[in-house]
Simulated scan of single mutants.
Amino acid sequence: MDILLLILGLGCIFIGILGSLIPVLPGPSISWIGLLLLYLTNAVPTNYWILGISLLITIIITVLDYLIPAKGTKYFGGSSYGIWGTNIGLLIGFFSPIPFGFIIGAFVGALIGELVYDSKNHNRALKAATGSLIGFLASTFMQFLVAVLFMGLFIAIVWQYRASLF
């Protein structure tokens, strides 16, 4: 049972890292579930401090994930159309064969969203799309960093209790 929980936890860690780059999946939350599954094994004693602090970090990052792109867009004069355009463009760009398509898609999506909102003011739309892209990149970087840190923590704990696990 311990090996199954270990494999499921490792799978959650990898899905969490991938999810930090895809807006549909909550990356840090899935990575935290991977840590929780590791602590549910009989070989690793439960450390409530690590679980509690990592859960608090996960909650903070999740809240910031919604605030940062919106603040970036608003700071540069954008609207909710730009935020929606960013997310839709990101998904389209992610599945396109273009290198870095998710970044290009996010920018183009925000630009189109802002032009739908106000088709007369192209400079405002470009500025808002830039703000949306900067907010998205900052939020994605934070999520990716947390997911990778959770993976490092997972590996360190597995290494520490390797004799009991294997």
Rank of each mutant, 00 (worst) to 15 (best):
L55R: 13
G131R: 11
I68E: 03
V146Q: 10
L36F: 15
S31D: 04
P69R: 14
G135V: 08
S96I: 02
G9F: 05
S29E: 11
S164T: 00
Y66N: 14
K127R: 15
I61Q: 05
I61N: 05
L5M: 12
M151T: 02
L4T: 15
V148T: 08
I50L: 15
I61S: 07
F136A: 14
L8S: 10
I7M: 14
G52Q: 08
A106W: 02
T58W: 12
L145E: 10
F136T: 08
A43V: 03
V63M: 14
L38V: 02
I57N: 03
T58Q: 06
L56Y: 04
L25A: 09
L55H: 13
L25W: 04
S96A: 14
L115G: 01
N87P: 00
G34S: 10
G11I: 15
G52V: 08
L40Y: 10
L149W: 12
G34I: 11
I157F: 03
A125K: 03
D2F: 10
E114R: 03
T41C: 05
I30G: 01
V148Y: 03
M151F: 12
Y75C: 10
F76R: 14
T130F: 03
L4F: 14
L145W: 09
L10Q: 06
C12A: 15
F14Y: 14
T140F: 04
N121P: 10
G135R: 15
Y161P: 09
M142D: 06
I157P: 11
Y81I: 09
W159M: 14
Q160V: 00
I157Y: 04
F76Q: 09
P99H: 06
L67Y: 13
I103Y: 13
P23L: 14
T140S: 13
F154S: 01
I15S: 07
S96E: 04
L137K: 07
I13Q: 06
H122N: 11
W84A: 09
K71W: 00
Y161K: 06
F102C: 01
I155E: 10
L18K: 01
F154N: 02
I103L: 10
L38F: 05
S119G: 13
K120M: 09
L38T: 03
P45W: 11
I17L: 10
L67E: 12
F166W: 13
S20K: 02
T86P: 00
G89P: 01
I112T: 12
V44P: 09
K74D: 07
A43F: 10
P28I: 08
S139Q: 06
L111N: 05
P28E: 12
I33C: 01
F166G: 12
L21T: 04
W159E: 12
F150A: 00
L145Y: 13
Y117H: 15
T62K: 02
T41S: 07
I33W: 05
S80Q: 09
F136P: 02
G135H: 11
Y66F: 13
L153A: 09
I157G: 08
A106V: 05
Q143S: 15
S164C: 01
L133I: 08
P97Y: 10
E114Q: 06
G131L: 07
Y39I: 00
I134A: 13
I88A: 12
I30V: 15
L10C: 03
G78F: 00
K74H: 00
S164K: 14
S31R: 06
A106G: 11
P23N: 13
F102R: 00
S132F: 02
L36E: 01
F136M: 14
L67A: 14
G113M: 07
T130S: 15
